[in-house]
Write a protein that binds this DNA or RNA. Structure first.
Length: 571
DNA sequence: GCCGTTTTCGGCCCGACTGTTTTCAGTCG
């Protein structure tokens, strides 16, 4: 799958053209095409081979030619020429807050600045203030932006956003002038990383609400403050925006500020086609400006002839088309989960006993909980020897005699060794209630080798589940460059369940892969990979990822009752 | 650069805030 590679080049071209001063609509065309290809269900190489590029929405003659060249040669002459004309370093400058294409171009043309370093120096020397459109405040803001960029990588993981977001939202709700309120933006869509938090509130007295908002104890700096929109920076560097609207606009505003941007662009053009105008204040008749609806989010969708679209689906991955045809999936619900199969106990590198884990699982209403400790060769994580396994199995049998309403399952997260064999012999694997297999060592091997290693791992007759299939750690380790379609096909052939790992820095499979698995009718299982009972709440992030991948209840192994589960595991 | 049961040319989503100006361009979401 070269989709991401192609999309990245198109995004970069768009940025470069922006700096060059091309018209907005041209660069937008590049971005729309890039986004479409990034989330495309099929391999772009296949589309090229079959000459169907121009059937992709947003790809015309010119882009088709360029995409073909990228796929076939791994490069693009036009892109190389652009990079010669406009230094690549300028793309990094674009990421600084307050700097857009116009300002970056001005910095380059008049001061020859092409790097963040050079920009910082020029700010300190006060060289920017004499340029048209710049001033002393701009210099200071840019310097602050550079420092902030060094401090944080820009985006935070979902669990951090949850902590910061829910606490701040609780504080907002305490303001008496606030009527309705919600966390919107990528937080509400449950994206895997969050750039900033968006809080929406309705009120008749926005000034009071804004005053309350900026007085939150953890605010380190107020970035802007107006009657409808304010922004602050928290001490950990996360930006939080608050928007306040009137009650009759609350639903439209929630729709608007939940995004994604691409989803909204499509929504608004659909509105225009149907004779309306849609903005954050409501849906209006185009000619008369008459207010149609906007108080309730759902009504905005239905007025446009659409079924309600869950926030997790709003990525312009076909959800608007599906909603207009009544073909949206009925997404797996957070309440549908009946158990967690991926939990480590004190037997390996977990911090809680099996009994503590079982008791905790009951609080979630689970019917079963699977203890999957590491296997013998993974010494660093306390992998279990065959002797210890016997002890563990006996302990689980004892606990199951005591417990009511929940069953502890005896499992393992068995290492797939470098040569593709599993870390226990089949005679041992046969003893488990279920077997998770996964790669935990030698991550840097050649991608073809890695692919055949994993495929041979899941081919073992006792392997049930493939843990964290692509091995990525968000922000720290790239995913294996394996062909995900091959992997999904192999999972289908070997009757293997693919894990959606819920740990906030994994979320692996991701939403795009999960959607692909669903389309190929391969079932997934959502596991937390908990190393303490506190991690067990991460299930929510795994479910969110499954929902973002269009998955329904029947697509997920751990929504089935114990009897069906065992049957599906072949035990 | 794309697209068309309004159009093959002329549109393309739009409002708020800041910092720079002296009525507005640029940025952001």
């Amino acid at each position: 799958m070269k989709n991401k590679f192609v999309a990245d080049i198109l995004y970069q071209i768009a940025d470069l053209l922006d700096i060059k001063g091309e018209i907005f609509f041209k660069t937008r065309a590049y971005r729309i095409a890039a986004q479409t290809i990034e989330v495309l269900d099929e391999d772009i190489e296949t589309v090229v081979k079959e000459g169907r590029l121009e059937s992709i929405q947003g790809v015309g003659e010119a882009l088709a030619k360029k995409i073909k060249e990228i796929v076939e040669t791994g490069n693009l002459e036009y892109f190389e020429r652009l990079k010669k004309e406009i230094p690549e370093g300028l793309l990094e400058l674009l990421e600084l807050p307050g700097l857009g294409p116009k300002k970056v171009a001005a910095l380059y043309k008049s001061l020859g600045i092409t790097t963040v370093d050079a920009l910082g120096k020029a700010c300190i020397q006060g060289k920017l203030r004499d340029l048209d459109g710049f001033g002393e405040i701009t210099e200071r803001n840019i310097l602050r932006g550079i420092q902030l960029k060094e401090k944080t990588s820009g985006r935070v993981l979902l669990n951090v956003a949850y902590q910061d977001g829910n606490k701040y939202h609780d504080y907002i709700k305490k303001c008496r002038e606030v009527e309705d309120s919600a966390l919107a933006g990528s937080f509400r869509r449950k994206k895997e990383t969050i750039g900033d938090l968006d809080i929406l509130a309705s009120s008749e007295n926005p000034d009071e609400v804004m005053n309350h908002f900026v007085k939150y104890p953890d605010v380190s700096r107020i970035l802007m403050k107006g009657p409808t929109k304010s922004s602050v920076l928290l001490s950990d560097g996360l930006q939080v925006d608050l928007r306040v609207v009137k009650k009759e606009s609350y639903g439209a505003a929630l729709q608007y500020f939940t995004g994604s941007k691409e989803h909204n662009v499509k929504m608004r053009s659909l509105a225009i086609k149907k004779g309306y105008r849609l903005n954050e204040y409501g849906l209006f008749e185009k000619d008369t400006e008459k207010y149609v609806t906007g108080r309730v989010e759902k009504d905005v969708y239905s007025a446009l002839g659409l079924d309600y679209i869950e926030p997790e689906l709003r990525e312009n991955m076909g959800e608007i088309e599906a909603a207009s045809e009544g073909k949206l999936p009925r997404l797996v619900d957070y309440k549908d989960i009946l158990g967690d199969l991926h939990i480590h106990s004190i037997y390996s590198d977990g911090s809680d006993s099996i009994e503590t884990i079982a008791n905790h699982a009951q609080k979630f209403g689970y019917k079963y909980v699977g203890i999957a400790d590491h296997s013998q060769s993974l010494k660093i994580a306390g992998g279990l020897s065959e002797e210890t396994l016997i002890k563990k199995q006996k302990e689980i049998q004892q606990i199951n005699k005591k417990l009511e309403g929940i069953t502890v399952l005896f499992g393992t997260e068995c290492d797939i060794k470098k040569d593709g064999t599993l870390d226990y012999p089949n005679s041992v694997l046969a003893e488990f209630d279920f077997v998770i297999v996964g790669v935990h060592t030698a991550f840097k091997m050649d991608s073809k080798q890695m692919e055949s290693r994993i495929l041979s791992g899941i081919e073992n007759e006792y392997a049930n589940i493939l843990a964290h299939p692509t091995g990525r750690l968000i922000g720290r380790r790239e995913a294996f460059k394996i062909d995900i379609e091959n992997l999904i096909d192999a999972a289908k052939k070997t009757n293997t369940f693919l894990e959606i790992n819920s740990f906030p820095d994994r979320l692996d499979l991701n939403n795009v892969h999960a959607k692909l698995a669903k389309e190929k009718k391969v079932k997934c299982v959502i596991g937390t990979d908990s190393h303490s009972v506190a991690n067990m709440t991460y299930m929510e992030f795994g479910v969110a990822t499954a929902r973002r991948g269009w998955q329904e209840k029947s697509d997920i192994l751990n929504t089935y009752g114990l009897k069906d589960l065992k049957k599906m595991l072949g035990r």
